[in-house]
Design a binder for these strands. Structure first.
Length: 955
RNA sequence: GCGGGAGUGGCGGAAUGGCAGACGCGCCAGACUUAGGAUCUGGUGUCUUCGGACGUAGGGGUUCAAGUCCCCUCUCCCGCACCA
């Protein structure tokens, strides 16, 4: 047998003798367009605000309990949506439609993350302005989403590229720029407070010079160094061949650009940074208060990477080398030191010649330390990240020729450089304690370095490095009297830190893996910074009145490119070439002066870092959001609540960056008093992905998936066998199925029901076009309950339904409510199908209104168009959107009689039917009588009656 | 390597410790049909001597009762990956 394989789109309707009023795709399309118009014309899904232009005291939900549900907004790509994209949108749409019917004032908006690279690249290639491309793509997305019947409040939609939107992105940047973080108060504060502290002398400038003696430039530099947004030299992936810095993700493992395959150089460039590290602790702590998947919380915790330990200074002939360690308690076991090859101190410590008695194995075979170091640095720099990982087990390094002093016991310990120490973490230098650290142990084995245990391992410990708990040993210095011996790890840490601090050798310290956020890009299609530079070269914030700083028109959207191998080049941004825009004369308080605009633009993350706030008050041109509106939609519910969006749905791929940046900005705005919620997203839900099969021929070339035919478990395309693989849906894989095709062939409601019924929302699953027909059959049966397929007449009857169907109805109502509240849409739909099938079988002439009306209402979150149509045909004039969701009659949830399975020794041996209210004794007797034959002469040892469930007899 | 999650029919998936496989696809049979890739009805875990036996990755345990709880093993997926 042959059948069309999974992604084949077949024509579901047949031209033949289809009854004229059947619920076909054509019928669905007509109904859907009509109700979409109705909703748009009537503003059905407008959500009223407490105040401002979107307030509406006449709205049925004005002042009702609120629910704010948000989807991660899409980047409107040129290829449009495929069937996987709207999965989450349909989920939140179904959920919010349900919640609206249960009385909530629901806010469910949608916007577009419209700045981004693809439009710019397209612009570079074709000369089409990115705005043109972006707007066309947004329009296409809007049309696709509208066709799915998604109930957004269209007044609240925006693109991050709208000047009216990015005006506020720039405004937030100014707030951040004009703030500093006060670690004592654990809050962001206006930069004016800091200036006041310096002026008053309550805060000292570094070096102790009085504020009054500092020059204007010195003052500004000092202040700028405290700002939450600041300019700094930062290492970036500089790609001269492309003329731009690249994100890590855009660089291949071989250290070349993904696009163009040009060399990429790690280089320090002046960049805008965001001081997100100041918020490390709070970003970490507040995770505990969020209703987020543990997986995402764990990823953020790892990303922040907080470690507690100490900074310790190791003196050498030319000064100190500072290390960070989480195990200061093992200081007596530090038998050597390692610096990262790139560590800036290396050059200063290398002596002219190898010290007396240097082991040959330590020199790498070089005549002088300088040669050995230079050679090892070349070796380390040449390694790609992938090679580094692969080589992680084999430790390499070289002796620098220098020794440092272990401050606790005065021991002279050799200093190595090795690539297992990373320049970017901690201080880029470590004290090596081979007895208590696996990596150090491996290195010590290779270079034959001493290993001194300072924690007593258990008697049965046969390993190498011991990283567990135990009493300190070998940790005393008779000269200074310092001894940790006998102390547990925690106590030893506390004692040694105290000693280090008292003796000036170090201090307790906390470090983070989290780095400050590189915030500038050498691109055109992004938000311009609201920053100019004056003659000093220092940045000056533009006043709020000059916002938005709009993107100027340019002739060429691409940055200047260079010789791909010339690392010593500097980026030239597209905006820097618009001289008449860059050079401006402004009056910023000192009279008209010449200034130069910042020509970098913001990264794509900027708009998405705060958009949840703008939906609340999108028309407000006085503030980014009115406090009353923010408090109503996002404010904390009680003293322990951090507030935020009630439900945020999106893919787990944004687990770290987007969600961390958004939390950071939100906290700054919270600290500065603009909003009442301390977190942007109270609850996070990661939807699964819709995946698809793709097929390759013998050459490994993808063939159109929809033309592949399955025969007996093998796959063929044009009679040649092809290989099946499973993964993403994508143009290049030739396996894309679009929602538009689904709407055309089945209708939007069928598509929605199918996507919601195919499994729990958080589980990824394969797309199977073949299976969509199941959802269509369900809707057709439901339709047939109301509409006569031959005449189009409404055939529902007013007689009450039978008792059994009624009980089913109420069980379904109760079950669907439970499922909807828990977002178990697949099981809710299963129950609706069951009810529909039951109603179909018991209603030869016409289904009872008693059953059909609640069914239609319960269907409406999933299949809103056909539900509206049926509701209308049932004689109602209003939209179903605000009709109360059916409620179960508790009296009907208990059956009149109960069938108990009777188990004997765990096996079902019979069934009894007893009245639901039968006392346990009656159930027991009936059960024993039922299985009397099985029991024969054996005496039951135990009889367990689980009320309403079953009887279990043990013999 | 470390951390987390998951393994249930041919497929997607259901099952507060209480009758495993709801619901859907597919498949089989029937009805209506010139026709069926439409629709409707019924059936569909495996084996079976037709009594029943077996069955939730594999093995062990707790329990009257285990897909569910505990221990071990295997496989797959995800995250992190020399973070001091």
């Amino acid at each position: 047998m042959s059948q069309a394989a999974d992604t084949t789109v077949v024509q579901a309707d047949n031209a033949g003798d289809v009854p004229p009023y059947r619920y076909t795709a054509a019928m669905a399309n007509e109904i859907e367009a009509r109700w979409q118009d109705f909703w748009a014309e009537n503003g059905t899904f407008h959500a009223p605000n407490p105040t401002g232009p979107l307030a509406d005291p006449g709205h049925p939900r004005f002042g009702a309990e609120k629910l704010y549900v948000m989807d991660m907004f899409p980047y409107p790509s040129g290829s449009g949506l495929h069937v996987g994209h709207p999965l989450g949108y349909i989920g939140t749409d179904s959920y919010t439609r349900y919640k609206r019917m249960t009385g909530y004032n629901v806010l469910h908006p949608m916007g577009f993350d419209a700045f981004g690279l693809p439009a710019e690249q397209y612009a570079v290639q074709t000369g089409t302005h990115p705005r043109t491309t972006t707007e066309a793509n947004v329009e296409r997305y809007r049309a696709q989403l509208r066709r799915l019947g998604l109930a957004y409040d269209d007044r609240r939609s925006f693109s991050t590229t709208d000047p009216a939107f990015y005006r506020w992105t720039q405004w937030i940047f100014l707030q951040i720029f004009n703030s500093w973080y006060d670690p004592q108060a654990r809050t962001a504060r206006p930069i004016a407070d800091l200036i006041a502290q310096f002026e008053a002398g309550t805060r000292q400038a570094p070096g102790g010079r009085p504020w009054a003696e500092l020059t204007e430039v010195e003052r500004r530099t000092l202040i700028d160094d405290h700002r939450l947004a600041y300019v700094a030299e930062a290492p970036v992936n500089w790609c001269p061949g492309l003329g731009t810095a690249l994100a890590d993700a855009e660089v291949t493992a071989e250290g070349r650009s993904e696009r163009g395959n040009f060399p990429v150089f790690r280089r320090n460039l002046r960049q805008w940074m965001m001081r997100i590290t100041a918020y490390g602790d709070r970003l970490l702590e507040d995770l505990d208060k969020l209703d987020w998947p543990d997986k995402v919380k764990t990823m953020q915790r790892n990303w922040i990477g907080r470690s507690v330990g100490a900074h310790v200074d190791f003196p050498f002939s030319g000064g100190d080398i500072r290390v960070f360690t989480t195990r200061p308690d093992t200081l007596f076991g530090a038998t050597y030191m390692v610096l990262a090859p790139e560590h800036t101190a290396v050059d200063g410590i290398v002596p002219d010649a190898w010290p007396e008695g240097t082991r040959p194995a330590w020199t790498g075979g070089h005549a002088t330390p300088a040669e050995a170091v230079a050679d090892y640095r070349r070796f380390a720099a040449a390694k790609s990240d992938v090679e580094r990982q692969a080589d992680a087990k084999e430790k390499t390094g070289v002796f620098t020729g220098a020794y440092a002093t272990n401050p606790v016991n005065g021991a002279q310990i050799p200093i190595f450089i090795a690539d297992y120490v990373l320049a970017g973490y901690g201080t880029g230098a470590i004290m090596a304690v081979p007895a208590q650290d696996e990596r150090d142990f491996e290195f010590a084995e290779v270079f034959d370095l001493p290993i001194v245990r300072t924690v007593q391992p258990p008697a049965d410990f046969d390993g190498k490095a011991y990283t567990g708990e135990g009493p300190a040993i070998n940790s005393a210095d008779p000269e200074s009297g310092l001894s940790l011996d006998g102390l547990g790890v925690a106590d030893a840490k506390a004692k040694i830190i105290e000693w280090l601090e008292e003796n000036g050798h170090g201090t307790g310290a906390v470090t983070y893996r989290l780095r400050d956020w590189l915030f500038s890009r050498q691109r055109y299609w992004g938000e311009p910074f609201p920053i100019v530079y004056d003659e000093t070269g220092l940045p000056v914030a533009l006043p709020e009145s000059m916002l938005p700083v709009e993107l100027p028109e340019v002739d060429d959207f691409s940055p200047r490119t260079f010789d791909p191998d010339d690392a010593d080049t500097d980026p030239e941004t597209p905006l820097s070439r618009v001289q008449e825009w860059v050079e401006v004369t402004l009056d910023l308080g000192d009279g008209p002066k010449k200034y130069w605009r910042e020509t970098n633009t913001m990264p794509q993350w900027a708009g998405s870092s705060w958009y949840e706030l703008r939906y609340l008050d999108p028309k407000n041109d006085k503030a980014l959001v009115d406090p009353d509106n923010e408090r109503y939609w996002m404010g904390p519910r009680d003293a322990n609540d951090v507030g935020g969006v009630d439900l945020y749905v999106g893919g787990v791929e944004h687990a770290v960056l987007h969600l961390l940046y958004a939390r950071f900005w939100h906290k700054v705005l919270f600290d500065l008093g603009y909003i009442s919620s301390a977190e942007p997203f109270r609850q996070l839900f990661n939807q699964g992905y819709i995946q698809a099969y793709a097929y390759t021929d013998a050459r490994g070339v993808y063939v159109p998936a929809e033309e592949v035919v399955e025969t007996d478990g093998r796959y063929f395309w044009n009679d040649q066998e092809v290989r099946r693989e499973y993964g993403k849906m994508g143009k290049s894989l030739k396996n894309v199925v679009t929602p538009d095709e689904m709407c055309e062939v089945y209708g939007a409601d069928t598509f929605r029901v199918y996507e919601m019924s195919m499994g729990p929302l958080d589980v990824s699953r394969p797309w199977e076009t073949r299976a969509v027909v199941g959802a269509q059959r369900f809707l057709q049966r439901a339709w047939r309950l109301v509409v006569d397929e031959q005449t189009g007449a409404t055939r529902v009857v007013d007689d009450p339904t039978d008792a059994e169907t009624r009980r089913l109805l109420h069980r379904v109502i109760a079950g669907v409510r439970e499922d909807m509240d828990a977002m178990r849409f697949n099981t809710a739909i299963a129950k609706l199908i069951e009810l529909t099938n039951r109603a179909t079988t018991v209603s030869a002439v016409g289904a009872s209104r008693e059953v059909v009306e609640p069914l239609v209402l319960m269907m409406s979150p999933f299949a809103p168009h056909v539900a509206e149509e049926l509701w209308h045909r049932l004689g109602h004039d209003e939209t179903v959107a605000y009709v109360p969701f059916p409620q179960a009659d508790p009296a009907l949830l208990v059956a009149a009689s109960v069938t108990y399975p009777v188990q004997v020794n765990g096996k079902v041996r019979g069934r009894i039917e007893v009245p639901a209210d039968a006392p346990e004794e009656i159930v027991r007797e009936a059960a024993l009588a039922e299985v009397a034959g099985q029991l024969a002469d054996k005496e039951p040892r135990k009889v367990i009656v689980v009320p309403g469930r079953m009887v279990s007899i043990v013999v």
